[in-house]
Design a protein around this nucleic acid. Structure first.
Lengths: 210, 210, 210, 210
DNA sequence: AATGAATGAGAGTTCATTCAT
DNA sequence: TATGAATGAACTCTCATTCAT
C-alpha cells in the first residue's frame, strides 16, 4: 500500500528498530494483537511512543513484519534440518521434528501467526502456502523417484501441514495437563512416533505399509 | 464464572434472544470479534442496545454461546452422516463429506471458531476436543475389530481433525482463484478423493494399502 | 457524505444536543477551530466526551452546524430590519445597521465563519453567497424601479458584502484602541454615516450624488 | 518577542534559508497552517528537520515571515502600477488591476494571509492596515485637490480594501464554475469594469456621477 | 552548518457497559 | 420487557521541538 518506512540511517536507529520488533513479537504473543497496544510495545522496547512511528506505519505494519519474520525462521529451521536426510521419509521426520522443536521454543509462532487471519487479509494463507510449497516440491520429487506412493503432492502437502499444525497445538502448545494459555511443553516422543507412523503409512509406496 | 442469564420467561423474550444470537453469529462472521460491536449486533437484531444485556452478560458471553452452537451443529451433521455407514472407512468418508459441506454452507464455522483462541481461553481446545472424541471412539472400536491398522486412536483422531481443518480452509474457505476474505466455494471432488485416499492409506490394516 | 446523526428521541436528548451546540459555538469563537478540542467542548457543555458523538459525527460536523446556524441568524436579523423600509436606500441602511449590531453582539460570527474557509471546503462561499443573494434581489428590483443607478446587481451586491465585512472587522471587531483578540466595540456613528454615504453615492441614480 | 534568529553568515546559509521560506509559502498555501508540518516544509525544501530551527524560532515564526513577504510584494505591485497614473481614478484602476493580477498569480496571498487571523494575533490587521494606508494618503491628497468627492478618506480606503478583497475572492479564487479549493481564474473584464464603475461613482466629485 | 533520532503531550474517536425511564 | 442516553477509559496516531553527533 504505502511506501515502507525508510531504513534507519544510523546504527542507533537500527538498534532501536530491532528492539521495537522484538518487543512487538513478545507483546503480540503474550497479549494477542488486539490487546497489544503501542504503549505496551514501546514500553517493552524502552522507547517513547512516537518513536514507534519512526519505523513502522501502524500496528498492523509491525504485525506483518513479525509474521514474515517468524515464517522465515520456521522455514529456515525446517529446511536446515531436513536437508541432511537421504530419503523422503527421513527428511519428513527431520522436518517435523524441527517444526515441533521450534514451536516448543517459540510458542509465539502459533500465538501470533494464527491471528494473522483476522488482522491482515491473506497473511495466514501466505504463511501456510510458503511452508506447503516446501513439502510439495519434496513430495513431487519423491513420487517421481518411487520413494512414496501415488498421491497428489499438493493435497498430501496440505495434509502434512494440517497434521503438524494440530499436533503441535494439541501436544506442544496445550500440553497434556496444562492450563489454557500456560507454558508449552515439548512433544512427547511416543506421540511423535505415532504421528510419524500415521504419515509414513499414508505416504508409503503401494504394498509397503507395515 | 457468573451465573448464566435466566432463561427468558415469555415467548417474546425467547424470540428476542434468538434474534440476538443469530445476529451475533452473522456479525462475528462478517467483522470478526473485535470489530463486531454491541451496537452492530443489536442493530442487526432490530432491538435497542440495552436489550442485549437482558440476555447476555457480555460480548464474550454471546461469543461463547455462538461457538457452542456451531460446535453442536457441526458435530450433529457429521454424526448424522456417518451413522448410516457400515464400516469405519465409509463412516470416515461420510463424516468428512458432511464436514466440508457444513463448512461451505456455514463459513462462520471457521471465521468464528478460530478466533475463540484469542477471545475465550480454552474455547477452541474444547471445540476441537469434542469433535476429536467422536473420531477416537470410532477409531478405537474399528481397531479392536481389525478394520484399521495398528495406530494410536488419539493421535490418529487429531491427525484427521488437522487434515479436515486445513483442507477445508485451503479449498473451501480460500477456494482456488479466490481473493482473501471472499466467498467460499465447495470442495472440488478430486481434492476430496485425494484427501480420502491419504487418510485411507494411513488407516488401512497392515499390508492393505493400494 | 455520511447520514446525519439521528435526531434525539427524548426531551433530555434534545436538551443535551442543544447544550453541545452552544458550547461548541462558544469554544470555537474563543479558541478557534484547531485549538478547540472535543474535551473542551464537552466540558463546557457539562457532558462526557462520548456523549458528543451521540449527536455529531465529528468536530467538523459540529463546526458546519454552528456556521449554518450563525448564517441563519444574521440573515434573519438583516431581513427583519430591512423589511420595514420603504425604499432601497433605507433598506440598505437598516440592513447594514442590523449587521453591525449583530456583529457587535455576536463576534463569534466573524471568529467562526472566517475560519470555515480552512476547515470545511465551500462553507465560507456558501455563507457569503446566501447573504449576497439577499442583496442581489433587492438591488435588481430597485434598479428596475429606477431607485438606484445602472449598476450590475451581482457585482454591486458582492461589493456591499465586502464593505460590510471589512468595516465590521475594522471598527467592531478590532475597535480603535483595542488589543487584538480583545472585546468588541460598537460601530462609531460617524463611521457608519461615512460608510453609508460611500454606498449611497455608489448606488445613487445618475446625476444624483450629493 | 524573542530575538530574531541571526542572519545567516554564509552564502550557503542564505540559500538554505531562502529555500525554507519558499517551501513554507508553498506548503502553507496548499495545506493551510495547521496541516502544514515542519516535516513537510523541510522535505519540500530538501533539508533535514533540524535545519529548520537554525533559521526560524518556530512554525509561527516562519508563518509571520511569509505573511510579511507577501504583504511587501503585493504592495509593491500595486504601488508600481498606480504610480504611473496622472489622476486618482486612473491610479485606482491601475492599483486594482495589479491587485487582481497578483491574486490570480499568487493565490497564496489569500490562502495564507486570511489564516493569519487565527494564527498570529494582529498579523491580519497589520496586513490590511498597511495596504489601506496607501489608499488613504492617495485619497486624502485627491480630496484636497478636488479630484474626488467629500468622503472621509479612512472609511473610503477600508471600503476599497473590502471591495477588492471580496471581488478577488469571489471571481479570482472561486472563479465561476469552479469547485471549492480548485485553481484560480483571472478576473473577467466585465466584472472588473462593473467593480470600477461602482468605485468611481462612490468617489466621484459631487454632481458628477454618470 | 546540518541532520536524523527521539520525545511525550495531546489530538479525535470508539465502545462495552450502566442506568433511568 | 425494552430502550435510548450517557459515560470515560482506552485506543491509535501526529507533530513541534530538542539534542547528540
Amino acid at each position: 500500500m504505502t511506501d515502507p518506512k525508510p531504513v534507519p540511517r544510523t546504527t542507533k536507529g537500527t538498534r532501536t528498530r530491532g528492539r521495537l520488533l522484538a518487543a512487538a513479537e513478545q507483546v503480540f504473543a503474550d497479549l494477542g494483537f488486539h490487546d497489544a497496544s503501542i504503549v505496551k510495545i514501546t514500553e517493552a522496547a524502552g522507547v517513547g511512543q512516537g518513536t514507534f512511528y519512526l519505523y513502522f506505519h501502524s500496528k498492523i505494519d509491525v504485525f506483518d513484519e513479525v509474521v514474515e519474520d517468524l515464517n522465515r525462521r520456521v522455514r529456515h529451521a525446517m529446511i536446515e534440518a531436513s536437508s541432511r536426510a537421504t530419503n523422503r521419509i527421513d527428511a519428513e521426520r527431520a522436518g517435523f521434528a524441527a517444526f515441533f522443536a521450534f514451536t516448543a521454543e517459540h510458542p509465539a509462532l502459533y500465538r501470533i501467526v494464527r491471528q494473522a487471519e483476522f488482522v491482515s487479509p491473506g497473511a495466514l494463507r501466505k504463511h501456510y502456502t510458503r511452508i506447503v510449497e516446501g513439502y510439495m516440491t519434496g513430495l513431487a520429487k519423491a513420487r517421481a523417484e518411487g520413494q512414496i506412493g501415488d498421491i497428489d503432492p499438493e493435497v498430501a502437502a496440505w495434509a502434512l501441514m494440517g497434521i503438524g499444525e494440530i499436533v503441535g497445538m494439541r501436544w506442544v502448545l496445550w500440553g497434556d495437563d496444562v492450563q489454557p494459555g500456560g507454558p508449552t511443553s515439548t512433544l512427547p516422543p511416543d506421540v511423535f512416533e505415532q504421528a510419524m507412523r500415521f504419515i509414513e503409512r499414508a505416504l508409503a509406496p503401494e504394498g509397503e505399509n507395515r
